[in-house]
């Protein structure tokens, strides 16, 4: 703080602090407080708001535990997001390792462009592209039937396609942190392990993975948060049996008109995501400072 004061002087420092504080209060703290307030009150017709029935209650938070359908969707959202995270990591780790340690440096910009270009397109459009590819009479079915792997088209829409779509949507959020972590690993470490007789599996397990741990933690946290909070992918690629918890929240707000209930659900999801972050940090033994890097 004194460093900032010294560098920018009192006027500019005061301005910066004020702007940041305004930003945090207006855009983060106030809306959240409003939502917490909503979630703790019963839904009432406008005429009875502020009346004797308008008291603080945990009833909205209890709904989820009594509604087995919603609870089922909630649990499935969590484990499916964890699965998406695991699959994304499995896809991205070899890619990140290749880019960071194996690929010739002059090819790197090309590979990076290939990774980034699809992300210039809006997420909904990208997901819609998958929707078309996976459609009942879409190109994938036509291809598989055409070359004789399938006898008849298959309905891909469902849990599998949701996970596929999400892995695709969030690849970058995993690749870059993991790439950054592996890129900082001295190649001689790998060579030293190899020279001492280690095979590739052991080199990854003992040298590369431990070094990449903070990057993997960051990638997993981001992917999990995005997956758990995803709305477009499950909406477009999910079947009737694969609803996501975000859709339930949406329905409370905009179809049920019950903002109080929706806010409570949203907070349960938020608490769970924070819990996941803490768990990941514990699991990967990384601190906040490692992640900030």
């Amino acid at each position: 703080m004194t460093g900032v004061l010294h560098r920018y002087g009192p006027v500019l420092t005061g301005f910066i602090v004020l702007v940041v504080a305004l930003w945090v209060v207006m855009l983060v703290v106030l809306p959240q407080i409003l939502m917490i307030d909503f979630s703790l009150r019963p839904m009432l017709p406008p005429s009875r708001v502020g009346g004797p029935e308008d008291v603080y209650t945990l009833a909205n938070y209890m709904t989820l535990w009594t509604n087995t359908i919603h609870l089922g969707i909630f649990v499935k959202t969590i484990w499916a997001s964890a699965l998406v995270t695991a699959v994304t990591l499995a896809v991205c780790y070899p890619m990140a390792f290749y880019l960071a340690q194996v690929a010739p440096k002059r090819r790197l910009p090309t590979f990076m462009m290939l990774l980034v270009i699809p992300f210039w397109i809006n997420e909904i459009l990208r997901t819609f592209a998958w929707y078309i590819i996976l459609a009942y009479s879409g190109p994938l079915n036509n291809l598989l039937v055409g070359i004789g792997i399938l006898d008849a088209p298959v309905r891909f829409q469902g849990d599998g396609s949701v996970i596929l779509g999400m892995v695709y949507a969030y690849i970058l959020f995993m690749v870059f942190p993991v790439y950054n972590a592996i890129e900082s690993l001295d190649r001689h470490q790998i060579e030293a392990a190899r020279d001492l007789g280690a095979g590739w599996l052991r080199i990854h397990w003992r040298i590369v993975l431990p070094h990449a741990r903070p990057g993997i933690a960051v990638g997993c946290i981001m992917t999990f948060m995005l997956a758990a909070g995803s709305y477009a992918v499950p909406l477009l690629l999910g079947g009737p049996q694969s609803r996501w918890f975000t859709e339930v929240i949406y329905n409370w707000f905009f179809e049920g008109g019950n903002w109080n209930q929706g806010a409570a659900y949203a907070f349960i999801l938020l608490v769970l995501c924070i819990g996941f972050i803490l768990l990941m940090m514990r699991l990967f033994r990384v601190g906040l400072t490692d992640i900030a890097k």
Binding site: D186, H188, Q189, E191, A192, A193, D195, R206, I207
Partner: peptide
């Protein structure tokens, strides 16, 4: 066994 210039200890 190779000893690297930067030693490459783990």
């Amino acid at each position: 066994a190779l000893i690297f210039q930067n030693l490459a200890l783990f």
